[in-house]
Nucleic acid binder design. Structure first.
Lengths: 221, 221
DNA sequence: TATACTTATGGTAAATTTGACAACAAGTTT
DNA sequence: AAACTTGTTGTCAAATTTACCATAAGTATA
């Protein structure tokens, strides 16, 4: 009766800039245009599994943070016929990722969040929804770490928050608030190759991370 | 290829108790069992419109607060075959509502939130997701008013929050916080027919309501 | 070697918010 | 009139936030 697809908003963070992974379609009516990576759901496949598969096919990565946004179902959202799509968003660690264009896409490329081109169908709307979700989610759940390498400095973490929220934060106050949560563990290791005082590296505490992921917190910034 | 349905978690608030509207199926494999009201999406019908239609057919009400939860798509969530459902939740003013059983349901009934029976398919899961969404949403957006009559007392509003969040609040502090938002307008009118000092009635300010609906707030209780 | 420069980290004081509770007000019931 | 019930206002210490400043620990430059 209906076609159902998956579309993923994949966020990455590099050099203080938030990026989204877009693909250039190689086949079909939208050939040559940019859009979100996605695909049709298989028979007997759970929708979360379909999103995981789509993600793996594109990035080669498993075990990625992935969460459903919602379903998008305007009857004319795509010209060819009725397709309802279920939006997902994912957060990936830039360093682990290696670009792979798939069969149906000719190119895959990171775009800065403030220079997103016009995308096919309603993909700009899905992307915007994903960004808003990320903005609110990062204030109530410790998901931001999925965008960072395993070891990071407090300022890297702060810049991530600044970039996602689109506003400047106070170093000193950010440090106090984030440390109060006991989510971070100081490492006996410092930043390398910087031409100024090296900052301490941190990682997050798995146990507390799990607890806070369920309970949530309230990060007023 | 796939069937897509809508299922609605409809909340109502009466005498300080949060209720959910359930229906008893009159036809099909689930005949005689209780579940969430819902139905299939029509061809060329937007999914939001399908939810509105479902709601109107059951309650006769238009212009109701309605918001999508997410899509539920386990391959075996219903025994008959693959159906992906899109969950919605709605908040309605009890006083405006008049029960109507439809064609496919033999009965429609309000259930207290703490006495929900075993429902068909994954409807208990959808309901739980809806309640959680309501709990977090009510702390960041002024949606609770949709559950109350036009004029209400501060204590009625507080009891609504208490019931939804499942915890007791302090009268004095609640009053201070809610009034600080400037969302409420004092009316020159008091509660009627109570056997104690009558409380002042309030309504909410449309303009500020709209503004806060977009901007959101942070209601720490 | 001394000085300037950059970022990291720790601290502080004023302002604001919170939490817990007391006190009083305005009615109804006994 | 006294007791009772709920509404409304006020208080005050504790906790938190905000906007800073000061110092530490390095690198680069004169």
């Amino acid at each position: 009766m209906n076609e159902i697809s998956i579309d993923c908003v994949i966020f990455g963070f590099k050099n203080g800039i938030l990026n989204v992974l877009l693909v250039k379609h190689a086949i079909g009516d939208s050939k040559g245009e940019w859009g979100l990576p996605g695909g049709l759901i298989l028979k007997k496949e759970a929708i979360d599994a379909a999103a995981q598969r789509t993600l793996k096919e594109l990035t080669g990565l498993d075990n990625i943070f992935l969460e459903q946004l919602k379903a998008f179902g305007e009857p004319n959202r795509i010209p060819l016929g009725r397709v309802i799509t279920i939006g997902y968003y994912a957060l990936i660690n830039f360093d682990d990722y290696d670009v792979k264009a798939g069969i149906t896409v000719s190119e895959a490329k990171w775009y800065k969040i403030d220079s997103i081109p016009k995308l096919i169908y309603d993909h700009n709307e899905i992307l915007d929804f994903g960004l808003k979700k990320l903005q609110t989610r990062i204030l109530s759940t410790p998901i931001g770490f999925n965008l960072l390498p395993e070891k990071f400095t407090l300022l890297q973490l702060m810049h991530l928050y600044e970039e996602i929220l689109g506003k400047e934060l106070d170093k000193s106050n950010f440090r106090r608030k984030i440390l109060k949560m006991k989510l971070l563990v100081v490492l006996d290791e410092k930043q390398q190759d910087v031409s100024h005082r090296a900052a301490n590296l941190y990682k997050f505490d798995d146990a507390i991370y799990k607890k806070l992921s369920q309970k949530g917190f309230n990060f007023e910034i």
